[in-house]
Design a protein around this nucleic acid. Structure first.
Lengths: 183, 183
DNA sequence: CAGTGAAACGGAGACATGCTCCGCTTGATT
DNA sequence: AATCAAGCGGAGCATGTCTCCGTTTCACTG
């Protein structure tokens, strides 16, 4: 790739990060181009679709996921506290940008989504946490990872749409934790 | 209201029902006008915003809610079966039109939403079911109606976005039921 | 260090959609 | 029949997506 193309690509991702943070994932594409000081044509050559740009942005979050699992599992207290810490982290990661939670979770099921690899990282992280719960014998029988991911994605989406504060999200996560852990 | 205006209004609701069913709640407003054989101006006079049209459409569902509560509570089996039957019904009601679940649930929190009265009906219905569970002493302490509504709204939204079949939704509702009922 | 060709750029503009404004039409009333 | 407000409709503006293609820039070569 030519040096100027490389520069533009990096700048576009950087600017897109700002714009999407300020105005949500549905912000005008042309706004991203304008702020990056390039024409729309250039933007669309680098990222043919809005989703391609989303994907590029989320790539930076993905790197943090593994660390957040560890951090959550190091929480003081029992399995329940650790699980809840992870759930809160999961929701926080999904709601970084307005509109992200719904898109990521929707792509969990379909094999051919452009966000596939990204959402798979989340699903894998959640699976590893559930596996640890199972190892401690506190996980209910028959609890499926995909279902839990979707439940958390649903909570994150509701939090996103209603601009819920963490303390409003917590009781929902409590219910899910109760439903996932043995009594 | 003049007779022709009345006719147009009714026809618009009828057509909007079809269009939104086919193409989701974000379908072009002008498409509704065109199919109804009126100009966009007429559509917007009757329904100044997209939400106003949504509201008019949902008014017809609202009438069914009370009946569905009764039907669910008449389900064979114990409290858990009744609760799950209601949860399934709740999700089904919310997913009648693509995009409805997210909008309705998002308006649960804010007092000034145009969909307020509609979503309140759902919330009230769910509250009555939870109250019956509490009467039977099977409801966990501290479970809040709004939280359960949001959880169900989240599930419905995920089902909507991923076009999930009822059998894919059921396990999520199982988890919520486990989390809401005493062990 | 020009010359060259391909890669990259940028922005005009075609197209879709939301919504409004205002001149024209029509229904109800007298 | 005459009247006129209520109602209608569609041209048209605003915003946003995405493409096409003439122009510019980079990197390589002799």
């Amino acid at each position: 790739m030519r040096a100027d193309a490389q520069r533009n690509r990096e700048r576009l991702i950087e600017v897109a990060h700002e714009v999407f943070k300020e105005r949500g994932l549905d912000a005008p594409m042309d706004e991203v181009a304008r702020r990056a000081g390039v024409g729309p044509g250039t933007l669309y050559r680098h990222f043919p679709t809005r989703e391609a740009l989303h994907e590029a942005i989320m790539a930076t979050w993905i790197e943090e996921v593994a660390g957040q699992v560890e951090k959550a599992m190091a929480t003081e207290g029992g399995c329940r506290e650790k699980l809840l810490a992870w759930f809160e982290e999961y929701v926080a990661l999904l709601t970084r940008h307005q509109g992200a939670a719904a898109k990521i979770t929707a792509s969990l099921g379909c094999q051919d989504s452009p966000l596939r690899t990204k959402c798979q990282t989340y699903a894998d992280a959640n699976e590893s946490v559930l596996a640890q719960m199972a190892d401690h014998g506190v996980l209910r029988e028959g609890v499926d990872n995909l279902d839990v991911c979707r439940l958390l994605g649903g909570v994150a989406t509701m939090a996103d749409h209603s601009s819920l504060a963490p303390e409003d999200v917590r009781p929902m996560l409590d219910v899910i934790a109760n439903g996932v852990l043995k009594a």
